[in-house]
Design a protein around this nucleic acid. Structure first.
Lengths: 226, 226
DNA sequence: CGCTCTATTGATAAACCTCAAATACAGTGG
DNA sequence: CCACTGTATTTGAGGTTTATCAATAGAGCG
């Protein structure tokens, strides 16, 4: 298995032999695009680390509207805290590309945490980032207009999955207008209209499920209401 | 100090002597209503447990709009994860009533976590609840109409701070229309209008900074879009 | 009783969604 | 290489929701 300590967020302060033990105790799973790793309201029996590919984490409202919470890439964890509780987890994890994950069941991960307290403490750091991200997005949802939120969403996705190209920074996730709408709580039409305007201003370049950001600075200013 | 293990969320699986040690290592602080325990973008140098009274956790948007993240009551923790990172924490904690907290500085809390791994693991459980709450509210913000969100907010506050009275369930937090608006991302006028309607339907009874819920079931049905 | 803070309510405007039709694009099989 | 098919995207018209502004009424306090 091609897993390095460096690319993981959870095992930062562990030694290599400790890390090897952890991976050995987990189970490798390979999934096809669009398959579901775990489903909303499943009992959280295992937690996972993405090793290759990407997961899309979503929630479904009672009216059936899908909301995207986050995209996870290599080294990131899913259901890591949920597994510690004997509860269901109201989130669905769907593969965007072909995706490889390592899974640990509850007894294993709990035992590992007791054996290496650093894991739990690292996990707290990771969770802090999640809360921070969620709180900021919650703040934006409460206080900003749709197209500001779209700008911030593109910038956020760019920071997490951006690849430099001659044309600009390419967001390396297949993102439809609908996906962007689900990510920032609006509709396909509104996203499409907004992106059209920005494309005319040469701030972005977009295609079918593809976004390239040509002028991040303009988007930042726009998001800040300038 | 009047602190019991039972009423705290963090120290659940600790023995009483262990618990006593923890409290002894902390610092007791008593604050007047409206005073600020920590301010948005302060460096998180201590974490706190509320022992008496209530804290209001808020964030401020770039345009100056206040958003209420949560009200904390006895036994709940503030800045508990932020303190583990050497970072600022974008949240303000303001006292609603006269409030007593216990504070621990970073070296102390880190040492305690290494000494008693159960603390870090309990903390993960608490943090899970926070994330769960935030995710649900984020979902609601993304997918529901204002008055559905107001209904859910009242129900949520009722569950966390409700007191049974002959008239109905009283939310034991001084809540102005503006507070409710800040809690669910809308405006004072909209909240006032909505509550007026519900008062006429006899679902609630409200006064100056006071809400009594007379028919929770009606609100639940309304929130679910029935 | 007057002062201040909170709440109510109306009128108006802006933001945004919904619905719908047309167009562009990628992949497939002939 | 081209037509075909299923998505994805664009764009318009119209309506709903909700914010904004503003003026009035009510509650609590010294």
């Amino acid at each position: 298995m091609l897993i390095s300590v460096e690319k993981t967020e959870i095992f930062e302060s562990l030694s290599s032999p400790q890390f090897a033990t952890l991976i050995k105790k987990g189970q490798q799973i390979i999934l096809q695009p669009k398959s579901i790793l775990f489903h909303q309201d499943d009992l959280a029996e295992r937690c996972f680390m993405v090793n290759r590919g990407r997961l899309k984490l979503t929630m479904l409202s009672e009216q059936g509207k899908e909301v995207i919470l986050r995209y996870l890439s290599s080294g990131e964890l899913a259901a890591a805290i949920a597994v510690l509780r004997n509860q269901t987890y109201p989130v669905t994890a769907e593969c965007v590309d072909e995706t490889e994950v390592i899974g640990w069941d509850k007894p294993t991960i709990v035992a590992l945490m007791h054996q290496y307290p650093a894991i739990a403490i690292n996990l707290l750091g990771i969770v802090f980032d999640r809360i921070d991200d969620l709180q900021h997005r919650y703040l934006e949802m409460c206080s900003e207009h749709v197209n500001q939120r779209i700008a911030r969403s593109l910038l956020r996705l760019m920071r997490r999955a951006g690849i430099k190209t001659p044309e600009g920074i390419h967001i390396d996730i297949p993102l439809s207008r609908q996906n962007i709408a689900d990510y920032c709580g609006t509709t396909l039409s509104t996203v499409s209209r907004t992106l059209s305007i920005w494309e005319k201003k040469d701030w972005i370049k977009s295609g079918r499920e593809k976004i390239i950001i040509k002028d991040p600075h303009a988007l930042v200013l726009f998001a800040e209401g300038v």
